[in-house]
C-alpha cells in the first residue's frame, strides 16, 4: 500500500531542479519506477513527493558518434538498448547486461540510469558500463559536472549525487579498437533474478586493454583495469595475477542468494572464462 504523496511532472530539467529545492519532506525522482514503486508498496520507502521525469524530452537522448561515443539519456530503458541496432553493433555487452537485468515487462520500464542511480551492489548495468568507460552527466542547482562512474558508487544503495542534483545521462566512451566484451551473471535461476555475481570483461589486443568489473561481490561494484599487467607479463603469469587480484579486490557476503565462498569461486571462474573468451592464450 502506497502512502499519500504529491506527484509532479515537470517538462524540463530546470523545473525539476527547482522542484527538488522547493518540495518539502522526502522527494524521489520517478523514471521507470520499477524499484521506487516496489519500495513504496512495501512501505520500505515513502516519499512525500514524487517527481516524474518522463515528460522531459532532453532525457530521452540516445545518440552515438564516433568521436563522442554514446550518450545515454536518463529515460532510456533497458529494452530500448536491447532493440537498438546501433547498440547491438557498437556495444553488444550492454545488450547482454540488459537482457540479464530482469523480465521483459520490467525492462520496458526500467531505465539504465535508474539501475545506476539505485547503486545496488548487484546492479546489472554497472559492470558493463564500468569496463566500457562511463561518466555520469549530473546537473544540479550549482551547474553541471561529470562524475566517473567508478566514483559514482559510494556505498550500498548510495551514490555521489548531492542534494538537488539529478543524472541527465551517461557518457560512454567510444568503442576501443578491436575490443570484445561480455557480461556473465550468476543468479539462483535462469529466469529473471537479482544477481548473485556479475562479471563484465573487456579486452582489446590491438590496444592492449584488459578490464574487468564485478557486481554483487562487494558493497559497490568493483572495477579492475589490468591492461598494464597484460602488457608487462606473459599471458599465463598475467592471468594468474589477475585471478589473485580479483580475489583480493572483492569482499562478498553470504545472503539468501548465495554464500561468500561460492561467490568467490564464481567470480574467479567467470573471470577466467571471460578472459579466455575475450583474449585467449592463443590470441596473443
Amino acid at each position: 500500500m502506497i502512502r499519500d504523496l504529491a506527484y509532479h511532472k515537470p517538462d524540463t530539467i530546470k523545473e525539476t531542479i527547482e522542484l527538488l529545492g522547493s518540495c518539502e519532506g522526502k522527494t524521489s525522482l520517478l523514471a521507470g519506477g520499477t524499484d521506487l514503486v516496489v519500495n513504496m508498496r512495501k512501505d520500505a520507502y515513502h516519499p512525500d513527493n514524487v517527481i516524474d521525469v518522463k515528460g522531459i524530452e532532453e532525457l530521452k537522448r540516445l545518440e552515438y558518434s564516433e568521436d563522442e561515443g554514446l550518450y545515454l539519456g536518463g529515460l532510456v530503458t533497458c529494452n530500448q538498448l536491447i532493440f537498438s541496432e546501433m547498440i547491438n553493433e557498437k556495444y553488444p555487452v550492454l545488450v547482454e547486461a540488459c537482457k540479464k537485468h530482469s523480465s521483459h515487462q520490467i525492462r520496458n520500464r526500467a531505465t539504465v540510469v535508474g539501475n545506476i542511480c539505485g547503486a545496488s551492489p548487484g546492479a546489472d548495468l554497472a559492470p558493463a558500463l564500468l569496463v566500457l568507460g562511463t561518466e555520469v552527466d549530473v546537473v544540479g542547482p550549482n551547474g553541471e559536472r561529470l562524475i566517473p562512474l567508478v566514483d559514482f558508487f559510494t556505498g550500498v544503495k548510495r551514490n555521489a549525487l548531492e542534494e538537488g542534483e539529478i543524472v541527465r545521462g551517461l557518457k560512454v566512451a567510444s568503442p576501443i579498437k578491436g575490443y570484445k566484451a561480455n557480461y556473465s551473471k550468476k543468479a539462483r535461476i535462469k529466469g529473471p533474478d537479482l544477481s548473485a555475481v556479475g562479471v563484465a570483461g573487456l579486452a582489446s589486443r590491438e590496444e592492449g586493454v584488459v578490464r574487468f568489473a564485478f557486481g554483487a561481490v562487494a558493497p559497490t561494484p568493483v572495477y579492475l583495469d589490468v591492461s598494464d599487467l597484460f602488457a608487462e607479463k606473459d599471458y599465463k603469469a598475467a592471468k594468474e595475477e589477475l585471478m589473485e587480484k580479483v580475489d583480493a579486490s572483492i569482499s562478498p557476503i553470504t545472503d539468501v542468494r548465495s554464500t561468500e565462498k561460492y561467490r568467490r569461486r564464481i567470480a574467479g571462474v567467470y573471470t577466467r572464462r571471460l578472459l579466455e573468451e575475450l583474449w585467449g592464450e592463443g590470441d596473443k
Binding site: 535461476i189 535462469k190 529466469g191 529473471p192 533474478d193 537479482l194 539468501v256 542468494r257
Partner: peptide
C-alpha cells in the same frame, strides 16, 4: 523468515 517475497523465493520460470 528470510524468503518471503518473489525476489527472495524463486520458482521455475519459462527459462528454467
Amino acid at each position: 523468515i528470510r524468503t518471503n517475497t518473489f525476489t527472495d523465493y524463486k520458482i521455475p520460470t519459462t527459462m528454467d
